[in-house]
Amino acid sequence: MAEPQLDRIAELIAPLRIEPGERVRLRRDHDPGYTAGLDRHRDGEDLLQRGVALLADHQARLAAESTRGVLVVLQALDAAGKDGTIRHVMSGVNPQGVRVHSFKVPSAEERAHDFLWRYSGRLPARGEIAIFNRSHYEEVLVVRVHPELLDQEHQPPAPRGKELWQRRFRAINEWERQLTEDGFHIVKLFLNVSKDEQRKRLLARIDEPAKNWKFSASDLAERKHWADYQRAYADMLAHTSTKHAPWYVIPADHKWFARIAAAAVIADTLIGIDPQYPTLDRKGRRELRQFRGALEKG
């Protein structure tokens, strides 16, 4: 790949990355309307298509190599554009090599296990890309904003509050480190939408008949906890962005830019992995020549 293209990807995503130990102040330091100086009509479609092409090429090689996998974690508040991001960014890849898992309210069986149990069973196989549409981070976000949910997990008596979240942060970091050491790369994307843009998108779900099905009264109920979620996300980003699995805060007020940025981060990860098509040894090449000869004879 041409070096200028690699440099452009690196330049685009660098401001979005949360460095380990960085203090995260979403409202002050991460503008949901940021577009890196790009123009939607001049730059948007071309950059997205190039990102999609990069992903398709590297995903095919990842599947053929079949030794490493990629987990993409998508977290966001309601109406931030997770589904659209998945649909557009992954539009060029082979669906056989990509699996999307949307995690809803945990079942009774899932609540009876440790908080990472239900996510472990949905991890990618070697050669695959798995996308978590919401993820194990719900266990330090929704549960934190709604602590009454902890009562449903039947945990043994133990301190809650800050100590609980610190324990879970440590458990998540250790789990992700073990995965990366075993060949599974983790891409973590937080789609950062503003409160005003969320309001507009929720109104569109009410006003546009084709979007009515998307609207849920729970969206409004959760919106009342906006400030609590902002604090929970900031704390989560600060404590779980690590060298082996960093977070990227994707500005999401402009859907076209969010898709470009998400594609760039995933492509950068796959470029770093640099998967290769398997090559045959001398014996394998000799056998292929024999097979070719047999086919040419009819």
Rank of each mutant, 00 (worst) to 15 (best):
S107R: 05
R68H: 15
T240V: 08
D196R: 11
Q276Y: 05
V72R: 02
A238M: 13
Q5P: 00
I172Y: 14
E208T: 15
P159S: 09
V142E: 02
R134G: 12
Q178N: 05
I273T: 09
E176R: 02
H101D: 08
R289W: 13
A79G: 10
D268Q: 10
R231C: 02
A158L: 10
A63K: 06
T269W: 00
R231Y: 02
I273S: 10
Q230W: 03
R177T: 09
T240D: 10
K211F: 13
E11F: 01
T85L: 14
Q152P: 01
S91R: 12
D57W: 10
K211Y: 09
N192S: 14
A258M: 14
E208R: 15
L280P: 01
K200G: 04
M236C: 15
P15T: 12
A262V: 02
H254K: 03
P251D: 15
A130P: 07
D235P: 04
E3F: 04
E22M: 14
L189K: 01
I129R: 11
A63T: 04
F215E: 00
A263F: 04
G44W: 06
D7F: 04
W226T: 04
P147M: 07
A14C: 03
L189D: 00
L220A: 03
D235M: 11
A36C: 13
D268W: 04
Y233L: 01
E181H: 13
Q155T: 05
G272C: 02
L270P: 11
I186V: 04
L12Q: 01
W213N: 01
D235V: 06
M90K: 12
A232T: 05
L141Q: 12
V187N: 01
I18H: 04
T67Q: 14
L74V: 14
L179I: 07
R205Y: 10
R23Y: 00
F257M: 00
K195P: 02
